[in-house]
């Protein structure tokens, strides 16, 4: 291999990394706008225009960044950058619509789960370093909450991987996201297993608001209690970065759920349907059109998951106290997750 081709591949990867980051941020802000609009409509309000988050971010990025006197400056400024980078990196490992992940083969589900934990840690570290009592309380809550939802999250990942191991055999890495997405799990489990997987999906949906610090698990930035908690001292660019990080995190989580449980592509079905129609329809060259259909279908799936997992839940429940929230993840949700695992195992042996 000569140096030129290595350089070319490397350059292409850099271009793709920027492209995916850009798409991730764009989609994040777009769906944030959708989330705000639809929750406003559910509350009988008109709500902001869909592009409002773009305006908010533009404004935040141009504002002055204030660092509190007693804050540890480098941590305080570093936390939002880390918080943004982690979900963007996770996006490189996830299949987006019909496209396979950019860094295919370099990392798997376990890595993505670790990357998902980083924004929460960054928020907590940023909060602790900002020296405000409100931020300290918020950071403590963020850490407690993170420790609570990690268990159900891990249970869901393990269940999927265990089943995958059975489907694809011991040679293949069952944690590989490409493997998981090319073998839709629902087709391989029986009725009991299907029930188990449904419970696992429920568990993941329950973890969603906790990961994103949205109500009913918005304790870390509870506005009326501790005045936005971890973000109380954050302004300008730093706050804007946290804002973007949160939206990208939302896309990553929704994409993860799609990859694990709903990796279906519409183009396959469409193709089959066209073939079934036989000579009536002229044979359409799929190619680019198939890709387009799949992208639109992926965006639609994102929409549904964000609506049911984030928007609806966020407006339908009051904020829990932190001990109740922690209990909620440790006991009921973990039990539901374990039951799901049990059902999948039983379904496989029957």
């Amino acid at each position: 291999m000569n140096i030129e081709s290595i350089l070319e591949g490397w350059l292409l990867n850099v271009v793709f990394i920027f492209l995916i980051s850009f798409i991730g941020i764009f989609l994040g802000l777009l769906y944030k706008g959708f989330d705000r609009k639809i929750s406003a409509m559910m509350q009988s309000r008109i709500g902001p225009p869909i592009i409002q988050p773009f305006r908010d971010v533009r404004k935040l990025l141009t504002k002055e960044t204030i660092v509190p006197e007693n804050a540890i400056e480098w941590i305080f400024n570093g936390a939002p950058i880390i918080a943004l980078i982690a979900p963007l990196v996770a996006l490189m490992y996830l299949p987006i619509g019909p496209f396979s992940p950019l860094l295919e083969g370099y990392g798997d589900l376990i890595l993505v789960l670790y990357l998902l934990a980083i924004p929460a840690i960054a928020m907590a570290v940023g909060g602790f370093s900002s020296s405000s009592p409100y931020a300290t309380v918020g950071a403590q809550r963020e850490v407690v909450l993170m420790m609570s939802y990690e268990l159900p999250l891990a249970i869901s990942a393990i269940t999927v991987a265990w089943k995958m191991n059975e489907i694809v055999g011991p040679e293949t890495n069952p944690f590989s996201l490409q493997v998981i997405s090319s073998n839709p799990i629902w087709g391989h489990v029986g009725l009991i297993g299907g029930l188990g997987i449904a419970l696992i999906v429920f568990t993941l949906f329950a973890v969603l608001p906790g990961e994103l610090s949205k109500e009913p698990f918005g304790q870390a930035k509870a506005k009326t209690e501790i005045a936005d908690g971890v973000f109380v001292e954050y302004t300008g660019r730093n706050l804007g970065l946290f804002y973007i990080a949160n939206t990208v995190q939302m896309i990553v989580l929704a994409s993860l759920i799609i990859t694990l449980f709903f990796p279906y592509q519409l183009s396959n079905l469409l193709e089959r349907w066209i073939i079934l129609q036989g000579p009536i329809l002229p044979i359409v060259e799929m190619g680019v059109w198939a890709l387009l259909v799949d992208v639109v279908f992926y965006l639609f799936k994102l929409l549904l998951i964000i609506y049911f997992g984030v928007s609806l839940v966020r407006v339908a429940f009051a904020r829990f106290q932190i001990d109740k929230a922690s209990y909620f993840y440790w006991v009921p949700i973990s039990i539901i997750g374990l039951l799901g695992l049990l059902f999948v195992v039983v379904g496989a042996t029957v």
């Binding site: 639809i38 409509m41 559910m42 509350q43 339908a316």
Partner: peptide, 26 residues
């Protein structure tokens, strides 16, 4: 399924309470 969720779904399709005076968006 709490009563809140039914309320939310109902309100999603109802006429909104806000009167968009003088303009819908700034």
């Amino acid at each position: 399924p709490t009563s809140t969720i039914y309320l939310l779904i109902k309100q999603l399709f109802e006429k909104k309470a806000t009167n968009p005076f003088p303009l819908k968006y700034a």
